[in-house]
Each structure stands twice: as C-alpha cells, then as structure tokens.
C-alpha cells in the first residue's frame, strides 16, 4: 500500500517535471504583458503576431516539405537497399551495415559538419538541395534498420515459391516481399518523417540562402532572448502533437507503436 503511494507520488513528480515547462509556455502564450511572471490579462495577440511573421511561415513550409520529400525518398531507397543487403553475403552485409550505423551512432554535429564539408568542397551552394540531401542521408539508415528485421522474419521460401509458380522477380517483389515487410516500411517512413521534422543540428550546418526550418528559426529567436510568439508556437505544436498521438493511440491502442 505504501509502495503504491510512493509510486504514485514519484510518477506525479516526474510528470510535473515533464509538463511544467510546457504548461508555463502555454499559459504565457495568452499573456497580455510581455514579461513572464506578470499576468497582464488574456490576449491572442501573440498568435496574430505569429501568423503575421513571414519567416516562421516560410520555415514551417520548408520543415514540412523537407520532411515529406526526405521521408519518401529515403523510404524508397532504404527499402530496396534493405532487400539487397538481406540477400548479400555475410561479409558484404556486415560491412554495409556497419557503415550504415555511422550516421546513427555518430553525434549529429559530426555528421552535420562532415556533410557540410563535402558540399562546400564540391562547391555546392548550401540551401534547399543540400538540406534535403542531408536529411535523406540520416534517414535511410533508420529505414533500413526497421525493414531488415521484417525481411529476416519472412519465410525465405515464399519469394522462391512465387518465382517457381511463374512470377517474374518484379511481380514476386510487388506481390510477396513488399506486402510482407510493409509494417517495417511504414515504421521506417514514420521514423524518417519525425526525425526530419525534429532535426536541428544537421539542418543548421547544411542550409543557407534563406532556407530555414522551424528548429533553426526557434534557435535564432531564442538566442536573442524570450519572445512571446514562440510561446504561441509551442502551444499550437503541443495541441498538434497531442491530437496526433491520441489518433495513433486510438488506432493501435498499443503504446509500443509510438516508440520513436
């Protein structure tokens, strides 16, 4: 009984720690007075200011565009590569997988700086294209890592059976392999999308020419101090996240699916 109480108190404290900062932002996004700690009355003016801010709107657009494009590209490349890697000999497979782990295991700052070095060395102007490429580079390994286990679980005679029954390799791939590994592909695609939306470090080093994303703009605003329109932005993002998670949770009801 005492143990139960301790558990409850502990979890409450942890949730307080996790949510208090966010709630402070939410509350002060409606605060008329610019300074925190003083309540100047209810207002929506920071939301209006947020939507009038062209830089934020543009950053939002690039964030979603890059996330969408990079997750589609990396899911396609990643899935086919995973099928290829799965069919390779032991040595080739191990070598590729070890290199594939590099962007996962290396600190983001090293990956970001290394890619920037490459782009600058070949005189590729930093901007939208370089940001997109860098996102594809760090997304593909995650797609491969989520597709490969599904390939291993698959009955290896299935594709052979399809071929024996007269399917072309293309048909066997489309009708047998791809449907079988679909859950892995979807997990990989979702992971790529969220990683891309949330990325800061790699984008920071590999963009330029006025192309930014949400993280970069928040960073440059926050560096100059606290700005109430960021509070409004946080509130909107929190609402989006909660709605999305509740929808996903309703569909799966198994929390495990939410693991990033």
């Amino acid at each position: 009984m005492v143990m139960k109480l301790i558990k409850k108190i502990y979890m409450s404290l942890i949730f307080l720690f996790l949510y208090a900062p966010i709630l402070v932002l939410v509350v002060f996004s409606f605060n008329e007075s610019k300074s925190r700690g003083q309540w100047g009355g209810f207002t929506l003016k920071w939301y209006a200011e947020l939507f009038r801010d062209r830089d934020i709107i543009k950053a939002l657009y690039y964030t979603f565009l890059v996330a969408l494009l990079s997750s589609i590209i990396s899911t396609i490349i990643g899935t086919f590569s995973a099928i290829g890697i799965h069919n390779m000999g032991l040595f080739g497979r191990k070598t590729i997988l070890n290199i594939n782990y590099l962007p996962v295991l290396n600190p983001d700052i090293v990956t970001g700086v290394a890619l920037m070095t490459l782009f600058v060395s070949i005189n590729l102007r930093l901007g939208f294209l370089t940001m997109l490429i860098s996102h594809v580079v760090f997304n593909i390994p995650y797609v491969i890592l989520s597709v490969l286990p599904k390939l291993r679980q698959m009955n290896k005679h299935m594709a052979e059976a399809a071929l024996d029954l007269g399917a072309t390799p293309f048909t066997a791939m489309k009708k047998v392999i791809i449907p079988e590994i679909m859950p892995g592909i979807i997990t990989g695609a979702l992971m790529a999308f969220t990683l891309s939306i949330d990325d800061f470090v790699i984008s920071f080093f590999n963009t330029g020419s006025g192309v930014t994303n949400l993280s970069i703009i928040i960073y440059s605003m926050a560096k100059r101090g606290v700005k109430p329109s960021i509070n409004a932005l946080s509130t909107l993002m929190l609402i989006t996240v909660v709605i999305l998670l509740l929808l996903i949770n309703k569909r799966t009801t198994k929390g495990d699916e939410l693991l990033p």
Binding site: Y19, P21, I22, L25, T194, D198, L214, S215, A222, L238
Partner: peptide, 16 residues
Amino acid sequence: VPIWMNFLLRTYAWMA
C-alpha cells in the same frame, strides 16, 4: 508527448 515536441522548444521552455 514532450519528446514529440520540438527539441528547441523544450529547451526554450526552460529558458523561460
């Protein structure tokens, strides 16, 4: 939920 919020916003929250 908090880790699905933007990493920069979470850090910014502590600034505030």
